[in-house]
Structures are given as C-alpha cells and as structure tokens.
C-alpha cells in the first residue's frame, strides 16, 4: 500500500483540524492515498476533546488576551495546549482495516512509529496505553483517534519544548493558582524533546518522517484544489462556529 506524506506545514487551529477532516473524506472517497501529515499551529492554540466542555477546560479570557486560538477536536481525549514553537503534530489517516481492530493495539502501532523516531534521537521512550508516550516516566506525547465510516484518523503531539506558564494560564487554572508548586508538579509529569536531546526541531521532524515512513512505499504530496476548498469550508463553517465550539 502506498502512502502520501504531507511535510511539515503551519496553519491555524481551524484549518489544521479541517484539513484532517477533508483528508478523511478524500481517503474515504478514494481520491487520496492514505496520508501521514506533520504540522505546526500558528497562532498557538488550545484544543479540547470532542466530549469536553469548552468552558470547563479553557480559560477563554486568557486565550483572548494572549491571542491563543481555541478549538474543539473531532476526536475525544483531553485538552492540549499547542505552542506554536514547542511541538510537532502528526496525523495518520487511512482505511481502518489497515490497522488492528483493537483500538489500543492500533494506538500502540502508530505510537510505535513515534517511539522509533525518538529512539533514533537517542531518546528512550515507551507507549503507555491508552494514548500516551512516556520518557523516563514523564509524558512527552499524547494522541487521539477516531474511526468514522471505515476511516481511521489518529492525530497526536510531540512536545519539543515546554512553556508551562502559558499552558497553565490557558488551561482554565486561574492565574492565582499557578503556583511554583503546581509548575513543579507538572515538570514531574511532563517532558519534552529538549530535556533529553540537543536536536533542533528540523532534525526531530526529519527523524519522525523517517520513522513514520520506514518500510512503507510513499510519495510526498501537495494539497489538491478540492481538498483545500473543502478544508476552508470546514474551517469557517464548522470549526470556527459557536455551534461546534460550544457543543458541550
């Protein structure tokens, strides 16, 4: 099976999530090969899981002050702060029958590609079910998966650098509560590539491309006009809409 790889791009939150959905439609329709894509978020954003309450999880006022976008994902899982500089995000979109039927095993398979990428940077990482990757017991990556109409979509983040102060300020913890103790506690639970390697972000991205494509037939692809048009339609009509944002 041949894959289509879309190299590292930078978009805003709405277009990033809309591109994933547009690609899912294209893979389902047979107009696209299965896809592996990598992307950044500009401006920085907070995404929440499909089932989360936006007001429960996000400090909307602080996000407005800082110019941080807020978005509800198409996938479940928790709230994530996507720093424009501090992470690399991936998506894998393919027919579900390419992957194990068991959801944990399919997470294990795709997260295994990420673990291999980290190992090539001499960072020893392990998959921790349901959807995390740990380095020395600390979370460095989280992923979320959905399966709709025969298509599997899994996207996830790799933390390259950490900005805990901003992370806490946007994730609905009041400023008064961002104590040194809380940040220390997060440092004990969360890590990033820079804590374990001198590799630059480009080097990390290249390691991920190598690991995700190892043993696969693939080609680098660009967006078709139809995919971009559909993604822009979804970004404006769905992902930016109050109806979607305040779904729960």
């Amino acid at each position: 099976m041949k894959w289509r790889v879309i190299g590292l791009e930078t978009h805003d939150a709405y277009l990033n999530m809309a591109l994933d959905e547009a690609l899912s439609e294209a893979v389902r329709a047979g107009s696209s090969l299965p896809v592996i894509r990598f992307y950044n978020w500009e401006p920085s954003a907070v995404s929440i899981g499909y089932f989360q309450g936006i007001k429960d999880e996000i400090n909307l006022e602080v996000c407005r002050e800082l110019g941080v976008d807020c978005i509800r994902r198409w996938t479940g899982g928790g709230a994530v702060y996507h720093d424009s500089e501090g992470e690399i995000t991936y998506s894998v979109i393919a027919p579900a029958n390419v992957f194990p039927k068991n959801i944990i095993e399919s997470y294990r398979l795709i997260c295994g590609w990420l673990v291999s990428g980290l190992e090539s940077l001499r960072i020893e990482a392990e998959f921790k079910p349901v959807n995390d990757i740990l380095v020395k017991g600390k979370k460095i990556s989280g992923s979320a998966q959905t399966r709709r109409r025969g298509i599997l979509l899994q996207h996830g983040t790799l933390l390259y650098d950490l900005d805990l102060q901003t992370m806490f300020s946007v994730l609905n913890v009041s400023k008064q509560k961002i104590t040194d103790k809380m940040i220390k506690s997060a440092e004990e639970r969360v890590s990033c590539v820079r804590n374990h390697s001198d590799a630059g972000k480009t080097e990390v991205y290249e390691a991920l491309v190598d690991a995700f494509t190892k043993g696969k037939e693939y080609e680098f692809g660009v967006w078709s006009r139809d995919e971009l048009a559909r993604a822009k339609e979804l970004a404006e009509g769905k992902y930016r809409s109050d109806e979607w944002m305040y779904l729960r």
Binding site: T75, G76, G77, T146
Partner: peptide, 24 residues
C-alpha cells in the same frame, strides 16, 4: 463529569470528559 438537572425525574443531563467513544 456529569451535570444533571432533575426534580422527580431527570430533566436534562450533560456528560463530558476526556474519554473516547466511537462513533462520538
């Protein structure tokens, strides 16, 4: 997380959280 409005019967319920459920 569950938020539930009720008197003798459950009038409204909202279930939220960071779990996964397909189809959503």
């Amino acid at each position: 997380k569950v938020e539930v409005e009720f008197d003798d019967v459950i009038k409204k319920i909202r279930i939220t959280g960071d779990f996964f459920m397909h189809p959503e």
